[in-house]
């Protein structure tokens, strides 16, 4: 596609920003035309080969004052609408829904405050497309497993923070870009107008997979949103129930392999070999073949000062149990250990 300009945006604020962008753009074009015009004129007419003789003027206080003041005036004219828009963007009061957005290396977490909904959103483009082994889909790199779902027409406030490094949450057509900073919370807000799917990306360099952590927002009409909210709550309850069940080693291994490929394989690699110098391998490693308690501990709580995150807050008890079981039995680790979700629930307080 040969898109050359910002897209006009789909909210009132986004349109304001777009208009502002166009105003400054055209002012710059106009100034450019004048300045480059005079320059071109001189280049054409005041060249020696045309017999031009140099004049001798080399200062003129009046002109110099004038061309200091005129740009100053133009700048003030730009600053006025800019200030007005900025003040609007900073007013996050009276929101009807609060969503906490947390950036992780390399995924987003969405928590609907007061609604018990809490999930992660991860890139869903298959590795094969990225490695050119498969044709790239329409939304290559801009698609996720679980988009952020918003109700149309309501003011939604985002509370942005991060778990590890700085990320930045950006959806161009909503004109929201705000950094997610570990330990601090930034606010932003949006009133989505049209139902639909809006795509964006993380825009702060956050490490290896910075280019692979898209943002997808799905805006639904109020009724559909309410339905989604209810469904999501039921699903969360089912998750909890699953953690009470008994799981066999086979079941855990099967599920564990899946979880491993989405949560762990980027670093430790699908074959459990890791990347020497950067990420330790798990095949035959002391952690994955030694004491179960230590293994559970590092998965739940992470390892400070390394890329190993605390997954205790990110995965369900079942997934945690499954993935630890998987790691202890895959790639010839064959410890035969089976970790139960109940064990995890107990330790993960």
């Amino acid at each position: 596609a040969w898109q050359v300009n910002l897209s006009p945006g789909s909210t009132a604020i986004a349109r304001d920003v777009y208009d502002l962008h166009m105003i400054i753009f055209w002012i710059c074009v106009a100034i450019g035309v004048v300045v480059f015009g005079v320059m071109l004129w001189s280049i054409i007419h005041h060249r020696k080969s045309r017999g031009a003789e140099a004049h001798h003027f080399h200062e003129n206080t009046a002109v110099e004052i004038l061309w200091t003041l005129i740009p100053f005036g133009i700048l003030i004219a730009m600053a006025v609408p800019a200030t007005a828009t900025l003040i609007k963007m900073y007013d996050s009061a009276d929101a009807e829904l609060d969503i906490q957005i947390t950036g992780y290396q390399w995924k987003w977490r969405y928590q609907y405050l007061g609604h018990d909904i809490d999930y992660f959103s991860v890139l869903s483009t298959p590795r094969e497309q990225i490695n050119n082994q498969e044709a790239k889909g329409e939304h290559y790199l801009l698609e996720v497993d679980n988009p952020l779902v918003l109700p149309a027409g309501k003011k939604v406030r985002f509370l942005l923070t991060a778990n590890d490094v700085i990320h930045s949450w950006w959806v161009p057509s909503l004109a929201v870009k705000k950094d997610a900073i570990p330990g601090f919370i930034n606010e932003a807000w949006v009133i989505p107008e049209e139902p639909g799917i809006y795509r964006g990306q993380c825009t702060e360099l956050c490490g290896r997979d910075h280019g692979f952590m898209p943002v997808v927002v799905e805006v639904k009409p109020q009724a559909e949103f309410d339905q989604w909210l209810a469904d999501a709550k039921t699903a969360a309850a089912e998750q909890e129930a699953a953690a009470e069940q008994e799981w066999t080693l086979e079941q855990l291994m099967e599920r564990g392999e899946q979880v491993y490929s989405t949560a762990c394989a980027v670093c430790h690699q699908a074959n459990g070999q890791g990347i020497p110098g950067a990420f330790p391998g798990l095949a035959g490693s002391p952690i994955a073949t030694g004491d179960v308690g230590a293994h559970i501990d590092i998965v739940l709580h992470g390892k400070a000062g390394t890329a190993m995150q605390a997954f205790g807050g990110q995965l369900s008890a079942v997934d945690l149990a499954a993935v630890i079981t998987y790691e202890r039995n895959a790639w010839g680790n064959d410890t035969g250990d089976s970790v139960s979700p109940q064990q995890i629930t107990e330790l993960n307080q």
Binding site: G183, F184, I185
Partner: peptide
């Protein structure tokens, strides 16, 4: 102060 809940970025106190 922000971490302690004061000032413009006082919401940060939610995390602490």
């Amino acid at each position: 102060p922000w971490l302690g809940g004061e000032g413009e970025k006082g919401v940060s106190n939610m995390l602490w």
